[in-house]
């Protein structure tokens, strides 16, 4: 078994998803290779090279890959795909964007967002917003798989392997990058944080999210949101937790002014401990909460802040 992992990174830092994918890959075999594609990302490749269990790291460092656009990223993976039995990427917006193209061009199915590995060809994945868990077996020669990183532990650091540079450059002739608007935050990333505190429609407006942010800073937490809060423009889209947003599984998830719709639960119900703060005692979020506080959030949040301060 030979496994290729597509590294998740932002050209500067390797993301923890990659370490988690290595753990997933070790359940498939021990010939694990990582591809790092981007621009000025040699440091990322060096970080990948020190993950325990990794045998080989390939670096494609070129302006053509600066934004990891789907078309030529998929073609780059296809260019080196021969010989691999499994190709893995994280089920992030990068992985979800290019991996189905790799599958289609290899004429194989993609196994999406897997949370478990039963054998070389059998995988476990949630369907219907996580209300059912399917065990599926693929008969294709190559398994193209996107992985829900939060379902796997991060691999440890180990001895460093050398980094090989790939010479082929594949340009994207159909799509050009215009601009991006990245949310800047000093807080941990939602999908990597040990503690997440999320606000919903009950927060009433974007300014009130400052109450969550202050608590987040006291706890070293990330701040998330429900779809309703994002749709209402309180906070940016990248904070949405749920079936169609980010999937998180922190040690502690605090839902504030969130009702607990199935689509929201799909994104957080694998958290270790769930706290819900809601003024409606009947809110469905209480059905999954380990600790529920029926209270007005505008009273409870300042109290939490001062309790943490003392």
């Amino acid at each position: 078994m030979s496994i290729l992992i597509y590294a998740e990174h932002d050209n500067k830092h390797l993301k923890s998803e990659t370490h988690k994918l290595v753990t997933a890959a070790t359940q498939l075999g021990d010939d694990i290779h990582i591809l790092v594609a981007g621009l000025d990302c040699a440091a990322v490749a060096e970080q990948a090279a020190t993950i325990a269990g990794v045998k080989r790291v390939m670096l494609a460092d070129n302006p053509a890959y600066a934004h990891q656009l789907a078309e030529n990223t998929a073609d780059l993976v296809l260019d080196i795909a021969e010989g691999y039995t499994h190709i893995l990427a994280a089920a992030t917006t990068t992985g979800k964007n290019f991996m189905p193209r790799v599958a289609a061009l290899l004429d194989v199915v993609q196994l999406s967002d897997i949370i478990g590995i039963e054998s070389q060809d059998t995988f476990v994945r949630p369907i219907y917003a996580g209300n059912a868990i399917a065990t599926v077996q693929s008969s294709d020669a190559v398994k193209v798989v996107t992985v829900r990183a939060s379902a796997f532990d991060a691999a440890q650091e180990g001895d460093s392997v050398s980094v090989e540079t790939l010479a082929t450059v594949i340009e994207n002739t159909q799509v050009t990058f215009e601009s991006d608007e990245m949310t800047k935050s000093d807080r941990p990333e939602l999908t990597a944080a040990d503690i997440v505190i999320s606000g919903g429609r009950g927060m009433q407006d974007g300014e009130h999210f400052a109450m969550l942010e202050r608590i987040a800073d006291q706890l070293g937490a990330a701040v998330g949101a429900s779809r309703a809060a994002v749709d209402a423009g309180f906070v940016p889209n990248d904070m949405q937790v749920g079936q169609t947003g980010k999937i998180v599984a922190p040690q502690l998830y605090i839902a504030v002014g969130i009702s607990g719709a199935i689509q929201h639960l799909a994104g957080m119900k694998d958290s270790k401990v769930i706290v819900a703060i809601n003024k409606d005692p009947e809110a469905p979020i209480f059905q999954v909460a380990d600790y529920g506080l029926v209270a007005d959030l505008f009273d409870a949040l300042p109290e939490i802040e001062s309790a943490l301060g003392s």
């Binding site: 992030t92 215009e178 608007e181």
Partner: peptide, 13 residues
């Protein structure tokens, strides 16, 4: 496009 870090704008043929 809505991506994990924020928004990205692309031009396509």
């Amino acid at each position: 496009r809505e991506i994990d870090g924020g928004l990205q704008t692309l031009k396509l043929s």
